[in-house]
Design a protein around this nucleic acid. Sequence first.
DNA 1: GCACCTTAATTTCATTTTGAAATAAAGTGA
DNA 2: TCACTTTATTTCAAAATGAAATTAAGGTGC
Lengths: 395, 395
Amino acid sequence: MPKPVHSSIHQQIYDRIAYLGTVSKAELLDYFPLTSSSMTRILEELTAQQLVIVSGLGASTGGRKPILFQTNPGYGYILGLDISRLSSSLGLFDLHLRPLSIVRWDMDRSLTPERLVELVADHAASMLKEHQLERRQLLGLGIGAVGPLDSGKGLLLQTEFFPSEAWSNVPICALLEKELQIPVRLDNGANTALLAEHWALRDEACTNMLYVHAGMSIRSAIMVGGQLLRGSIDTEGAVGQLIIQTGGPRLRDKGNYGSLEAYVSVPSLEERVQSQLKIGRVSLLSEIPPESVTFPLLVHALEQQDPLVRELFLETASYLGVGLANLINTVHPETVILGGALIGADPLLYETAVQVACRNIYRHPEYNPVFSPGILKDDAALTGAALQILQGWEK
Amino acid sequence: MPKPVHSSIHQQIYDRIAYLGTVSKAELLDYFPLTSSSMTRILEELTAQQLVIVSGLGASTGGRKPILFQTNPGYGYILGLDISRLSSSLGLFDLHLRPLSIVRWDMDRSLTPERLVELVADHAASMLKEHQLERRQLLGLGIGAVGPLDSGKGLLLQTEFFPSEAWSNVPICALLEKELQIPVRLDNGANTALLAEHWALRDEACTNMLYVHAGMSIRSAIMVGGQLLRGSIDTEGAVGQLIIQTGGPRLRDKGNYGSLEAYVSVPSLEERVQSQLKIGRVSLLSEIPPESVTFPLLVHALEQQDPLVRELFLETASYLGVGLANLINTVHPETVILGGALIGADPLLYETAVQVACRNIYRHPEYNPVFSPGILKDDAALTGAALQILQGWEK
DNA sequence: GCACCTTAATTTCATTTTGAAATAAAGTGA
DNA sequence: TCACTTTATTTCAAAATGAAATTAAGGTGC
């Protein structure tokens, strides 16, 4: 029994309107134990503050037309920051979470945290200028970053992707708060992506979701009962350590034996293709020195219908399906969002992963999860980063 | 974003007092956004209703001694019912969840649901009589049952353990409500056991828990953020379908290939011992026809230090450790409760499972889960069954 | 066009709930 | 004893709430 968190009824109603998009007073009453007189008063207050605006009249269902409310998209603005390995991006969003501007840049190995903060500040400043907004209209900055990290303390822990002293235990929230003078929140990119996809889905019935992104590594996030599953540590990367083949190989002599990432990740795929080439398997890539065979070449070979590459891509997708089945059998989500370069290269890969997953799901007459590649695709993590602020800011 | 559930502040405060056991007004104020004047009023009301009683004065920490409150254990009584395969039990509890009486009986294959209801009613009546309680003092009956089931609808779905028409889609809640005229709630036994262990632990810091019971089958339950993880279906049995050996064997030609239950369950262990005996492995059991080798004999052989049996028991424990690691890497619980006949037969089994699990946990400097065999042991599911009522009943 | 039904929104007002601040109670420690 | 701490209670004005009546604005059938 954790300490309960209390947010004011105004806050809750605002959040509900934001989630529903456009909603009538009567509809809102379904969600709160209030009388219509109280709801009238609260909506008057929210409207007076300009937090909420009237957006017109809805269709009649046999009586008076309902007045429709929505949150005021221009009440304030939010920055979203997606920190990834190869590239990062910053987006400026209104309160309907529509992007006004998005800028991406490569993550150079020589980039220091201080330089990143400057970069963000510069981009933020020009975005504000572009849209003729003032700094005080910014409500906050949300970050979705590659782990490991400590979202509570706002720290990026030492990461294998920026393997330097400079990137060890970076208090990224504090740095950006100091620079921008606005609240900053941090979470891992898988969580923010899931959050955003859930938001974009706008499906009341979907409160349990699974998000899996298979690329350089496997990242995943889980939503249970409408809340992100947060164990006692940040969990984004742990999914790669799930064992799907007891006693199997490990990836680059690290991690668990027979782990998911040893079968489903870009480096693993590269390694497996290379070793097949070394033992003389025929392929379009046979001309190339095995050690030069990298992922972009593999994608190209796949497009050329190379049988060896195709076989190993499909094998990867199958193993991903096994991992998915395990996660699904643990949390039983209504919706599973699947993305990443490893299965994005060809529709068949996505289908294979889904098929294998489905084949191994615990049979239950009333259980039929929906698989989807997501709505927001590459902008999911960025949008979700901003969403953290929308949901957390004190209204 | 699920529909929020609203419970009155009185209810919440009662539940908090119940969980904390003994608590001062000042301490309670930490948990609720109330002023002390409001707390005074609410506690007065709860005390006037006899729901809460004053239990004395606490120690001074430099000032006035706090008045300590606790819930009134005699305000009402609760029945807990644990429906399992081999035996079931009924317990009568006070509101401190102390058992006044517990009765167990074997689950005969010929038992019908109707007969079970009668049995429960009879036992309940004699328990009430024994403690000179009246029927109206009963607040409800909570059930923890073997799955699959539908806790929302109060149904026991068709189960492999009672494989008859009579046990298909039994509306157990409705039947017992009609018979006993009190509210009845249903959940799977793993969930109720976890709930009870969490309650018994009384550790504020432990809001993420994993419960795994390895016996005839594997059952598990997960708590996240202080709430039971409930996917879109009841999940107790699905853990057995987790794949730990892609392409591995299945159990009795059913379920997933390489599933956890194919490696970690009584039938699987029996099968593996039998097949080793058939190929001539030496063992104390070599005298016995392989097909007659059943679990009780195995436990006996283990106690006799039989090498073959010992080896296969340990192998089973290792595989369990792999399954545990997968679950732990998914939810990162602070506490892992481990039980069941498969690892209860010898302390070494428990230790092996824990060791293998620990070896495969995602490394994180701040993560160190605690493993425990639980506090309540065999009474966990029963106690948790009653706990459902304690937490759910309208105060 | 007009009665009549439905749904939605507002108003009114007595009641309940709440928070802020002052006060009292009961202890510790020097 | 006195100063200080922690806990508990009281008081009262302000805020929030619910119930019920009322108003608004649309449908539908004749």
